[in-house]
Design a protein around this nucleic acid. Structure first.
Lengths: 204, 204, 204, 204
DNA sequence: TATGAATGAGACTTCATTCAT
DNA sequence: TATGAATGAAGTCTCATTCAT
């Protein structure tokens, strides 16, 4: 016997995975076709419409799903590290793993404007996006508290300043690391060290 | 008689301006139609094809043009300021002015991945993009030299670290400022002060 | 245990009733969907194909069934009246009851061309349609004989003329009565009286 | 130089003619495809959408056009006859010419319900349909006045009765004549004579 | 036997591009 | 040179039909 609770999501998940796979192959969400999704998810074109009311909904929900899963995964990995430095490095590893993919969670979420740029139809799901954004701040909180506990960073900072620093360090790393193809001087260890230095200096 | 040299660019520029105007209205480059461009530029659809070989080329070149003009404009504004702090603030003002537009020069250029996300066809123009990217580094150089001269920041830093810091501060500001609609605590002065603080601390 | 003889027709009838109900709701036979029929008949979509080989067959047979039942019903009601005038009025009542429904037996049958217009796939069932048409002529015969017996109409008329008169009176009434929504002067009694007058005058 | 007044209608008319041709070939308006219209009208599929906003609008307007032209044509032919009997015969000739076509003006217009049955999307154009209906009554008026003048029919009749008679005679003829394929006894002269007899008797 | 999830052919419609003027 | 009417390829979505359960 199949549980309905798990069954419906099964097909939806196939669509999600298909969309993500296509984006990781380099397709922009705007250029993805229904037939692409269907064949990638190994379902009929019509089936997609049994679970989503339009192509745009399917793609939007796939992105939201990917962000949700990705953030949970990131948080788990961050929690699994015990030291401040390693927690931060874990975030950078996640960034580095996604930097070549066409869909980088942090780049989508950091700045709601980027969301608009990334896929306009996502604006229909502002509520979920904001929920995800607050998840990022949870991760930041977790990270900062550990840093304070270790004495690595100072306590009592304006939380907006603190978040801007973390975001700046992450996006600075992301940019720097993204340039590695045409800048042989770049390597991940150096970039991670640099980002961590920013963090320490700006929060002390 | 009209000189071809000046005449061609006239029409091309009309297309560029039309594309930019559409994007500032909130249209995503992927959703812009040739007929949109033609009516915005007040030319016939066929005319566009006398100057560009495809819609994608027209849009890509419009974006490149916008970036070029925008960077020159930014550099001029930065140069017009005499103090380190004011030069940096000038960059942040440019960011703030573009943050609501659908086309933010820094967000497009900072991180080549974002370029891909923003408009995949831009990858055909990697050379020009890199030239623009080096223009950003020129601005960074100009800014940093002034900071060193003033004694505001320390000399002799690894240039990659320096650029990551500046980029991080800029993108951190961009993100922080972008959130202002759902975070009443945000205001530009505070955000600018925070970004400047990051800069000073991380570069000392 | 259920007898197949009675069981099969049970499901078929559910389909017939479902189709009729949909048409009475205003759906055109061409716009009826299999899923509409299935949910209206409270059966699965697949079940329909156990009893009919296609949607078109199901709809066609439903219409034929409705015509058959409707004609039998009409004949019964006509027979139940003893006087010529009342028999004719009974036919007009049937017309009036169906005039708002999307499926009017007389309009479908009177003129085979209308049949084509109403639902092209009915042409596959020309034999049954003609049988039904002859049923109408039976009703006409029954009516005319009574009229002659009563002395209300003259005997010995060319039967084609007689049928044209009756048909003309019925369709004239149908048209006149159909206009009642935008012609406040129309009311059923007046329309029935007028149709009866045509009948008497033309057949005397 | 091309007159815009005549040019736009040119393409629209090609569509109208295409739709009518398809219907005369026996296609039901519901089963006509855009590609059918395009190839029949010898235009590209996209061109249809430069002149109509949907397939349904194109078909509806084609039918309305056909009715309008047909009624004008009918009225002209009726006026061209000088005698009452010939005027009425002219109407019957029009009916006879259309009886095999899938689109019979009188059958569509006589009874608004039939309109619904014929092509549901026509209900969007109720205003035009009613205007056409009143054109029919103009023809009836013209016919009746001539009959009175000639002394063929009596004056002072209730106009609703009069119209019901004319409509009944026309539809009776239409039905009778439509049966000619399976009733060898039918021939047009006899049917016309019968319809005229109904007219005379019922209006005297 | 009965079902309805799944399918994919095929319909409508859009829009980049062409080309006669 | 400049135009925009015309085109048709290509995309989205629907829905009749099938078939595993």
């Amino acid at each position: 016997m199949i549980l309905e609770d798990s069954w419906y999501p099964q097909k939806r998940k196939a669509v999600y995975d298909g969309v993500i796979a296509l984006m990781e192959k380099g397709l922009n969400p705007y250029t993805i076709k229904v037939s692409d999704i269907a064949s990638e998810a190994d379902i009929g074109k019509g089936t997609l419409y049994d679970y989503f009311s339009s192509k745009e909904e399917a793609i939007s929900r796939a992105i939201l799903y990917y962000i949700k899963i990705g953030l949970e995964h990131t948080f788990t990995r961050v929690k699994d590290q015990s030291k401040f430095k390693n927690k931060f490095h874990e975030i950078l590893h996640v960034i580095a793993e996604q930097v070549d993919s066409n869909i980088s969670i942090f780049r989508i979420l950091l700045s709601v404007g980027a969301t608009q740029e990334f896929y306009g139809y996502l604006s229909e799901y502002r509520g979920e996006l904001l929920a995800h954004l607050s998840k990022i701040h949870e991760i930041y909180d977790h990270l900062a508290k550990c840093g304070v506990r270790e004495g690595a960073i100072r306590d009592g900072r304006d939380p907006y300043y603190r978040d801007m620093v973390i975001t700046g360090a992450i996006l600075g790393f992301s940019q720097y690391f993204g340039e590695r193809y045409f800048n042989p001087a770049v390597n991940m260890e150096r970039a991670m060290a640099a980002a961590y230095t920013i963090l320490l200096k700006a929060l002390n």
